[in-house]
Each structure stands twice: as C-alpha cells, then as structure tokens.
Design a protein around this nucleic acid. Structure first.
Length: 378
DNA sequence: AGGCCTTTGAAGATA
DNA sequence: TATCTTCAAAGGCCT
C-alpha cells in the first residue's frame, strides 16, 4: 500500500492525517459514520440478500466513496500514527506505561493501563469482547488472542528458538511489560484455576520466557489439542513424532485487527449477521468513524504487540509465513496454463495437428519423432 | 477440507 | 522510493 507518510510527523502527525479524513466532503460522511446505527446494519443485512444489489447500492453510494477515499487517505494515517505512538511509547515505556501487550495472557494479572484507576483486570480464558464491552474501557476487553491460542498442550517452539540469545534477554525485558511474578511463571500457583496446568508443567514446549505466546500455532493453523489426540489417536501421535512440524508463528495483529477482535462480537450481537465479510465491512466503517484518540489506543496496542513479538521472536520475519497462498496460486496457474503435460496433450488442447504443428503456447516441437524422449523433454 | 469473502495495517517484495 | 503483494482474524458459504 502506498506509504504516503511525508515523514517528520511526530505526535501531531496523526492529527494531520485525521484532518485529511475530513477533506473533500468526508467530514459530513464521518459525522454520519459516527451516527452509525442500526440503519446501517439493516442496510447491510438486507444487502446480503442480494449481492448485486449491494454492489449497486454501495458502490454507488457512500460506501464506495469511503472506499475510494480510504485508498488514498487512510493510508496516510498509520505511519505518522506509528511515529506518534512511538514517541508516546518512548515516554511511556519508561515504566509508567506498562501495558500487557498481550492482555489475553490468562495467567497474568496485570494492571490495565486503560482502566481509569488502573485496576487489575483478570482476563478469563475465553472472554467475549461483547461481554466486557459495557461499563469497561474498550481496551480492557481487548483480548487479542483468544484462549484458542492456549492449547492444553502448548505448541512447542522450534528447537533453535530456545537457543537464541535474544530470547533469554527478552524474558527480562518482558518482565517490565508483563509484571511477571518474582521467579517467573514457574511460581504461579495452581490456584489460578483458569491457567492451563499444562502450561506450567515444564520447559518443554514452552517458550523460554514461560509465556506461551498466542501467536504460535501448530502448523495446521488451528490449535490442536495434542494431549487429547494422543489418547485417542496413537497412530497420529507416531506420525507426528516422526514428522515434527515447526509451529507457525503468526503475524502480530495490527491496530485494526485488534479493533476487530474486540468489536466483532459486539457487532454480531447488534445485528444478527454472522458472516465475517459483512461484519468486517461494518467494522471497517466504524473504524473510520472512531476518533483519533480512540484509534490511537489501538495503534498503541498494536505497537506493543509488535514490540513484544519482536522480543519473543527476534529472528521471525513476516516472510516466514509468506508464499503459502502465493505458491498454491502459482502452481494452479502453472497447471492450467503452462504445463500441458505432453506435446500430444498440449496440441490436443490447442487444436493443433499432433504430427506437424508447432505449439505456440508452449513452443513444443512437432511430434515428428514421436519418441518418448521428445515427449519427456517437453 | 480448504478457499473465498471482507476489512485495515504492517512488512516484505518488486519495479 | 513508490507501488504491489501477502498475511494477520473471523465464520459462513461454496466447491
């Protein structure tokens, strides 16, 4: 996406970005977005009934205007916002702002920086964001990673992970963030019933910090309850032991993702929609309706997420998760386009003479020799 | 079972 | 450096 940041933006940079939101008639729209109500939901709901109708209405209406504007305008915000937030955090990281970058860590009773009185917010293992949303600061309910990430058997990290020097260093660094109890996680008492015991059983499979990071998921992409599976499917266990797969470390969530995670259930509750695509459309509009300050909270949280992620996985790169879909698409394309399988098949595909015609699309030679080698070379 | 849809933002890849 | 691409979450829907 275009990075339109002009640089030099600090804390006030975000202000400029937000102002740009209001340009070109978007101010009025923004006001309307602020008044986003059930009417919008009803629109969306009804629009789901007829997709073509959606396109006509939304593309022709404010939705498209928003989207058109977003491409150019919204992208301006984050960079400066990041700078802004970086500046803020540099001040806050000094100790007065110890935010649980992963507030979903169930075993950490952390002062919530977003609570007015910084009271301790104990996150349950699976806290619905909706359930928390009323009477609490929005971010207190923010559970960036649901309990699904805390499988009974914590996903084991790559073996080299524990050997990385940065990891050891980070456990100290993180203590500031997470207010780990003296002695570390190992001293957490079993009385914390919402803490999965398996997480306390030992170092194996647990990050050296003792923090099972929710970004780590088994290669399948879903949390696998291996302990239970083993009792039921010993064959699977054997297979797994033979072919240990590296757990996938997922990307840290960005501000909008965090916002979605918190607000999704609320939107679902408000309207009966369940389709994520529709929900996300609503959330996208609401996101733009947020005030600068409201968005800043999420940008700050996202920044913390990235910071923690970097500390937990110093060698991780987004590139690590790259290319899965891309590869599949390429392979599909290659299968359908380039690879005819054999000259005969290729020529048949394009209606060419099997004996004499040159195959333009794949440039295979005429099948004069009809030899196996020629076909193989194809 | 796995891909698609849909959103924004971060970051890697590419021109 | 600017632009493009991919992936993060979510869950219903479709093949």
């Amino acid at each position: 996406m275009p990075q339109l940041s002009s640089g030099g933006g600090d804390d006030l940079g975000a202000n400029d970005e937000m102002i740009s939101f209001k340009d070109e008639g978007e101010q009025e729209e923004k006001i309307q977005e602020n008044a986003f109500t059930e009417r919008d939901l009803a629109d969306l709901k009804s629009s789901l009934v007829n997709e073509s109708e959606i396109n006509q209405r939304e593309v022709g209406g404010t939705e498209s205007a928003v989207r058109r504007g977003q491409q150019g305008e919204q992208r301006v915000f984050p960079d400066k916002q990041r700078e802004h937030l970086d500046g803020v955090s540099k001040q806050q990281d000094g100790g007065m702002y110890k935010s649980p970058a992963y507030p979903g860590y169930p075993f950490l009773m952390l002062p919530d920086p977003y609570l007015p009185n910084r009271s301790v917010s104990a996150f349950s293992n699976k806290v619905s964001v909706v359930q928390q949303s009323h009477g609490m600061h929005p971010l207190t309910s923010l559970l960036p990673y649901s309990n699904d990430h805390f499988s009974p058997s914590p996903p084991h990290l790559p073996t080299d992970m524990s050997q990385k020097t940065g990891v050891h260093r980070q456990s100290q660094d993180l203590s500031g963030y997470y207010s780990l109890p003296p002695g570390g996680v190992g001293q957490i008492t079993p009385s914390m019933s919402w803490f999965p015991h398996s997480l306390m059983l030992g170092p194996s499979g647990v990050h050296p910090t003792g923090i099972p990071h929710p970004a780590i998921v088994p290669p399948s992409g879903k949390q696998e309850h291996e302990q239970y599976d083993r009792s039921m499917k010993p064959q699977v266990e054997v297979k797994r032991e033979k072919e240990p797969k590296k757990p996938v470390i997922k990307k840290p969530l960005n501000a909008f993702m965090l916002y979605m995670k918190e607000m999704r259930a609320k939107v679902i509750a408000e309207c009966t929609l369940k389709e994520s695509a529709a929900i996300n459309q609503i959330l996208g509009r609401r996101w733009h309706a947020l005030t600068r300050e409201e968005q800043a909270k999420y940008y700050e949280l996202a920044r913390k997420e990235r910071q923690l992620h970097m500390q937990l996985y110093p060698t991780w790169s987004a590139r690590d998760n790259y290319g899965k879909k891309k590869r599949r698409k390429r392979e599909k394309q290659q299968d359908s386009n380039a690879d005819p399988g054999s000259p005969k098949k290729c020529r048949a595909r394009f209606g060419l003479n099997q004996q004499t015609d040159w195959c333009g699309p794949c440039r295979c030679v005429p099948n004069i020799t009809n030899s196996v080698e020629a076909a193989a070379d194809h």
